[in-house]
Computed example of a mutant assay.
Amino acid sequence: MPDAGSDSGLSPVDLDLRVVRYFVAVAEYGHFGRAAAALHMTQPSLSRQIRGLEKQLGAMLLLRTSQGSRLTDPGQAFLIHARTMLATAARAAAHTRAAAAPHTITIGYTTNLVIGAAVRELRRRHPDAEVTTRHLPWNGAHPAVTEHVVDIALTRLPTPAEGVEIEVIYQEPRALLLSREHRLASRDDVELADIADEIMPRVSDPVWDAFWRIDPRPDGRPAPDGPVLDDAADLFDYLTAGDAVLIVPADSRVPDLQPELTTIPLRDVSPGQVALMHRTDESSSLVRDFGDCARELLEPGEPSPRRR
């Protein structure tokens, strides 16, 4: 009966991942001397390790030349699997570390999102866990998750998806943020046609900018361009001047902090989405449980009452 870990009854081979890493280094540098220096070992020792790997596999992997080294056909074939083996080993180590320390979690949340109810429930379910939270900039969730600053984050979409898993938790209507002195400020609601020619400030993230400015518009026209303003204070100052508008989540709390500004429901546009994000293939029990708490307890906030 074949080993449960083998493919189609093939004989198992005990490969030393350290030597596999040595081989990948030589393949990538194309030179034994440069690879040895990068690996902080001597060239003769590296050569012995590679010869031992070739003997174990029964194939020459590298041709030594006067200019350096190059892969043979068997070497090219093995390189594909060698990289996969090293990546799999790294993921296995990360998963093991996460499982070994399930009592610590850092939860991120971006501007104007509220996670208090879900955090309190997570702490109730795991009274011995160390649960910390971290406020992130509007576009800070993806780098914070991928760079291990936080373990999971609640954020608005769109956002980069490389290296992360994203799950939409709820949708929220969109509204128009504008000065109380703007010509539309007295309206009960507006449609996209009402702001067809209104200038909107931009942000440097092109995907986010296109979604929140609705650019291009449904008729194919580009949204009128305004200045690029990534800083919130600069953005609010620009809107307060009264000559521009901005599309925001309907429950934006900005008018509570900036009384010169107000929001008006925007009726004929698709809603925004709020989502959880965590690293791909890396999820501790606390990350999974916080996801459950978020799905159960988090929902769109109520828009701030309009003050005439």
Rank of each mutant, 00 (worst) to 15 (best):
G140V: 02
Y170W: 10
R180I: 00
G140P: 03
R156C: 09
S179P: 03
Q171W: 05
E162R: 15
P158F: 06
P173R: 12
S186H: 13
E165L: 13
R180M: 00
Q171I: 05
I152M: 14
L176W: 00
T155G: 14
G140K: 03
E147N: 15
H142A: 04
E167N: 10
I152V: 14
R156H: 11
L178A: 02
L157K: 04
L184Y: 00
H142Q: 07
L184V: 02
A144G: 11
Y170H: 12
T155V: 13
V145L: 05
I152T: 08
P158V: 04
G163V: 02
S186E: 13
P160F: 03
L176P: 01
L157C: 13
E165I: 12
L177Y: 01
S179V: 02
P160T: 04
A153C: 13
I152Q: 08
A153D: 11
T155H: 14
R180T: 00
E167P: 08
L177W: 01
S179D: 01
H148Y: 15
L176S: 01
A161Y: 13
E167Y: 10
E147K: 14
R187S: 06
R180V: 00
A144R: 06
E167M: 13
I152F: 07
G163S: 05
I169M: 11
A185S: 05
V150S: 07
P158A: 10
